[in-house]
């Protein structure tokens, strides 16, 4: 869906002159009628939970059932910062977000360049490259859990045959966190690559021709033409991937269950544990609001950078 964004923006720009055109009342009513179902869905499944969660975060709600719970103001929020288990969890989340996003970006650029190159059977390579992203995260997690299994996993078969010995890939906290990152990178690099591929295809080839005429080599052309022209795509991908990585939950749930020794618990996973396993819904709601605030801050930061890039005439 988001892949179409550039196209949609293009369409809006094309129709901009029609902005002031008045439409007939009947047409408008019809448009409104068409929009109502979507509006009901959006407000029902987005706005209601958003507000409800905010309300719950101010109460000491310790059951899923409706009832009257004591009002505690900001105490649930304060509790987060006094929770000794929260800081390691935050550390895992930041590490996961930083490393997985960085890896996905670097590998994504490489993959996009390869897919953009005039290869034979290019359609075939492109279909293969999109496969990991097409897998549901749950399947991806289960797949990697099996491959990383210390007893019968294929990864150990490979390392043993290479003389590197067998390892418990998910057996120690830090290694397990890195293995989850590997699984996440394997899946999401393809979507990053496709974003960047779309960006690459908008770069006019005469720019490269001109560079060649001026005597620039491939490396120089990459850093002076490709990278600056790709900045808007990179920014979009960075925003999306950072947000996704920050709220990572499903792959952790499937691959490690937060273990070993809580070494792979992330903020989203911890929030889930508090809310559903421990039935501390007020505390869980406060935690999830803090996640939202963190993501909002990240997104605003990125958007700022993107705007500065646009002002600099990159777009």
């Amino acid at each position: 869906m988001t892949v179409q964004q550039p196209t949609r923006r293009g369409a809006a720009a094309r129709t901009a002159p029609g902005r002031g055109r008045r439409v007939s009342a009947g047409e408008a009513r019809f448009a409104l009628a068409l929009l109502i179902p979507a509006a009901v869905v959006v407000f029902g499944v987005v706005l209601y939970p958003v507000v409800r969660t905010l309300v719950v975060s101010f109460f000491d709600v310790d059951s899923p059932l409706p009832g009257s719970y004591p009002f505690v103001g900001f105490r649930n929020y304060a509790r987060v910062f006094h929770d000794p288990r929260f800081y390691p969890v935050l550390g895992h989340t930041l590490y996961f977000t930083l490393v997985s996003t960085a890896l996905e970006l670097v590998l994504g650029v490489v993959m996009a360049l390869i897919l953009n190159a005039p290869l034979r059977l290019r359609w075939f390579w492109r279909s293969v490259a999109v496969m990991p992203w097409a897998l549901p995260t749950i399947v991806n997690g289960a797949l990697w859990r099996l491959m990383d299994n210390g007893q019968y996993g294929v990864l150990n078969a490979v390392t043993t045959s290479l003389g590197l010995g067998a390892h418990q890939w998910l057996g120690s906290p830090f290694l397990a966190l890195n293995m989850v990152i590997v699984a996440d990178v394997w899946k999401n690099t393809s979507i990053v690559a496709f974003f960047l591929l779309a960006g690459l295809q908008t770069i006019p080839s005469d720019l490269y021709e001109a560079a060649r005429v001026d005597g620039a080599g491939a490396v120089r052309a990459f850093f002076r033409i490709t990278v600056p022209m790709l900045v808007p795509s990179i920014a979009v991908v960075l925003i999306l991937r950072t947000i996704e990585a920050f709220k990572v939950f499903d792959i952790i749930y499937v691959m490690t269950g937060g273990g070993p020794a809580s070494g792979t618990q992330t903020v989203a996973f911890y929030t889930y544990l508090q809310a559903f396993s421990n039935q501390l819904f007020g505390y869980g709601a406060a935690l999830s609001y803090l996640v939202v605030l963190a993501i909002l801050a990240l997104a605003l930061g990125y958007l700022r950078i993107l705007r500065q890039g646009a002002l600099a005439g990159v777009q």
């Binding site: 029609g18 439409v23 047409e27 409104l32 929009l35 509006a39 407000f43 706005l47 209601y48 409800r52």
Partner: peptide
């Protein structure tokens, strides 16, 4: 085009009402 024509204000009124209901319910 029609979405932007009517639009903004009427649309906001209508959906705003819905939103308010959702908020109150929440």
């Amino acid at each position: 085009v029609p979405a932007q024509g009517l639009t903004r204000r009427g649309f906001l009124h209508a959906t705003g009402g819905l939103g308010l209901t959702a908020v109150l319910a929440a």
